[in-house]
Amino acid sequence: MSVLSPVDARKPRDPRDPREPRKGAAGRPRRRSRAAGAGGQFHGGRIAYLILAVVTAVSVFPLVWTAVAASRDNTRLAESPPPFWFGSNLPRNLEIAWHDANLGLAFLNTLVVAGSIALGTVLFGTLAGFAFAKLRFRFRTALLLLTIGTMMVPPQLSVVPLFMAIAELQWTNRLPAVVLPTLVSAFGVFFMRQYLVRALPGELVEAARVDGANSLRVVWHVVFPVARPAMAVLGMLTFVMAWNDFFWPIIALTQQNPTVQVALTGLGRGYIPDQSVIMAGALLGTLPLLLVLAVFGRQIVGGIMQGAVKG
């Protein structure tokens, strides 16, 4: 079997894979003593389900009520008690919100922005993460420390010069103004490094090299296959973050060429005769990510939990 085959590049199954206890819940004999955590051995009682029901209700209620408010009109929302059930205005409000907040363009823009940022973060993060994890070069430690140090630089810190820069470049209202500053992230580099340090056996890289593969081929055939799960998690987290990013976009963009968050902010501040329309906009702006969550919920949960344990 060739050493370049991605098959043996797979790391051994992680014993701490968070999905494992769930699969093992049917009473399959445990192979390892550390397979499940604390309560995993006990079934949850009624109180556990009660607590979870309350938490679920609290998590979902504001979203449901957004839809309720979006289906009413201003007059009904100004009454007491507030409405608890759906009215008939939803299609009308959605249409007004869609049109007034420029949401069609906003969705397209956000998809481009969040997609570019996620891809850039993952790609460059994996490359740099691999170098930091497995290659030796001068200043490696210093550069890594620099990277880690900048993880906590607040975005507020770069706003003023970035603003001056886009003023000079005449980039106000253009998408690169919001894509480029967040195209890479120190966190992405760090995340990938942490993953690859453990998941990528050094021998594999060496073997590929001995086979005559140059660095690009190593990255392509060895690193990427191994890194794929982490790349997926990082991509997803980055996408959600970029979709919801707020501080810089509302400075750099305007209602004429908005992202979803900018459009929603504009709707909140805009001349709208009806608050139910604002809620309709909030609903529309949230729906895509909620749909993604509904479809890929299991994978996303798994990704977040895996990410949590790995680092």
Binding site: P21, R22, A25, G37, A38, G39, G40, Q41, F42, H43, G44, G45, A48, Y49, I51, L52, V55, T56, S59, V60, P62, L63, T66, V240, W243, N244, F246, V260, Q261, L264, T265, G268, A282, L283, G285, T286, L289, L290, V292, L293, A294, G297, R298, I300, V301, I304
Partner: peptide, 27 residues
């Protein structure tokens, strides 16, 4: 801690718990 017990529908609870995370600050 509660969720670390063996639960029916644990995936459902985990996913709905993430719904607020998927909601933007603005919304």
């Amino acid at each position: 801690h509660v969720m670390n017990y063996r639960l029916r529908g644990s995936t459902f609870f985990r996913v709905t718990m993430l719904a607020p995370y998927a909601t933007s600050v603005a919304a």
